[in-house]
Structure formats: C-alpha cells, structure tokens
Design a protein around this nucleic acid. Structure first.
Lengths: 130, 130
DNA sequence: ATTTATCTACGAAAATATTCGTAATAAAAT
DNA sequence: ATTTTATTACGAATATTTTCGTAGATAAAT
C-alpha cells in the first residue's frame, strides 16, 4: 500500500476494488463470483481486468500454488478522496458545499448519522476558529 | 426542460453542460471558447459533441439565421442528483453518510458554509422527528 | 465579383474501456 | 493413465468516447 493514486480507476476497476477492499486478498474466481451477484460477467473478462490492474500497480498478487491471490494496492479512503475531488470539480464546479447539501437533502441519511455529522462539524468549527 | 435524465452524460458532455447551465443559450463558438479556457479542444470537436448531445435530447437548439443556439434540456440539480446517486453507489457503496463525512473532512468548506449545513441538518432532524 | 472567414454536416480515425475466445498448463477426478 | 475441470496468458473483437479532417453553404470583407 502507500502509493498515492493519481490515476482514476475506471468503473469496472472500481467494482473490483470494492470487492477486494472487502475481502482483502482474493482469487479471480472469488472476485468474479462476487461480481456475478449483480452483473453478468465472464470469468476471463474479470481475469483480464485484474491482470491489467496488476500491470498498472493497482493490484498486487502472490502466487499460491497454481493460482494467484490478488490484493488492492491503493487504499479505499485514499481512492475515495481522489474520486470525490474529481467528482466535486466535474459535477459541482468545485463546490464541496453544494455536494454536501444535495447529499443531505436527497440521499438517505438517518438521525444517528446526522448526529455524527454534527459532531464532525463542531470539530471542524473548533479548528477553523483557532 | 422536464425530461428526467436517466442516462449519464459522459465527462466531456458534462463539461459542456456546465457551460450551458451558466450561459443559458449559447452557440458552439461560445461554448468552445469557454472550454478553451481550461483545455485544448478543436472547434469541430465541440461541434460534434454538441450535435451528438442534441441527438440524445440532452440539448435542444434553435436556428438563428445561419447558426444554432443550443440550450441544456436537462436540469443542473436533476443531473447532479442523478450523478451523485451513482457516485455514492460506485464509490461509497451506497453510503451517502460516508461521502458527506469525507467531503466535510477533506474538501474545502468555510465556516459560513458549515453554518448553512447545520441549518439544513436541523431542518432534517425536525422532519425526521415527526 | 472574388476572396476570406465562419458555420454546419458528416464520416471516419484515434483513444479508451470492456468483453471474450482460444491455447497452454496443471491439478483433480474417474 | 485418461479425462475432466480449473487456472493463467494472450490476443483480438467489440463497444464507447473523443477528436478531427473535409466538404458544402452562407455571410462578411476586400
């Protein structure tokens, strides 16, 4: 880990990353099984994608006997941060504020979660006031 | 307007939409000039894209003498909402909460803006408590 | 009136992303 | 031992997105 991602994973790559962030290490078969739960995808398609991701150093892999164990080389939060920045720029013209307002306004967020957000805001305000 | 967007504009299309949302109506030349401020792009490239967007009913156009005036057919907030939903799913596994936390934590948000967000949260809580 | 500049239409090239077929290999099952 | 199954490697086909060259038309400039 610890390779600041500067290139954006594609959508398919992100799907695979999500699975690997959850599983830690996994074989192509495992990843493909997970993918198959929500989309039709051939085994060799997944394989090829993971090989490409390996070439790009998005994934590392170790040989375990006959097969390969793959692992994400870029961190989840790190990647989310990168994608979030680009998304804010492209979709909200750089205004994180607008994005947050829309997300709070229209996506599902529970009371407890709102509380957590309030805490975070309080923290932030404290820091900004220094 | 009033055509709920279900297809996602591509990145280039979104760039053009951003400009048209700002300008209202505009010619290809105007849009291309705006685009040129932050990226190299040939006139015919922009033209072609806008023609394609017109075919897809993302843009409407009226003929004014020799040239065309284009206008966004899908609303800004509507589109942001659509893209936000997909983005939350793809990047934050559906958790708007996580997205908001990350956005507040790491993107630039001012004190005033935090205040606004607090107000929105208070509103939301009121509604949820009913 | 001719030339120059500007616009649209169109097709196709280039770049990028996704999918999959086939072959080689090795393990597992019969 | 042979067959079946599962795996990787590889190349190429397909699909999608982006870019741009060329041609035709019309207005503007000379």
């Amino acid at each position: 880990m610890e390779n600041i991602p500067s290139i954006k994973p594609t959508e398919s790559e992100l799907e695979i990353l999500q699975i690997l962030w959850q599983l830690g290490k996994a074989t192509v078969r495992q990843v493909n099984d997970e993918l198959s739960k929500f989309k039709e995808v051939g085994y060799t398609t997944t394989l090829k994608l993971m090989q490409i991701m390996h070439e790009k150093h998005i994934l590392s892999r170790t040989e375990e006997g006959r097969y390969h164990l793959y692992q994400a080389e870029i961190g989840e939060e790190q990647t989310q941060q990168l994608l979030l920045g680009k998304f804010v720029d492209a979709t909200f013209r750089g205004s994180a504020m607008k994005l947050v307002m829309q997300a709070l306004g229209n996506q599902d967020v529970s009371l407890d979660e709102l509380d957590e957000i309030k805490k975070l805001i309080a923290e932030k305000e404290k820091n900004l006031n220094l």
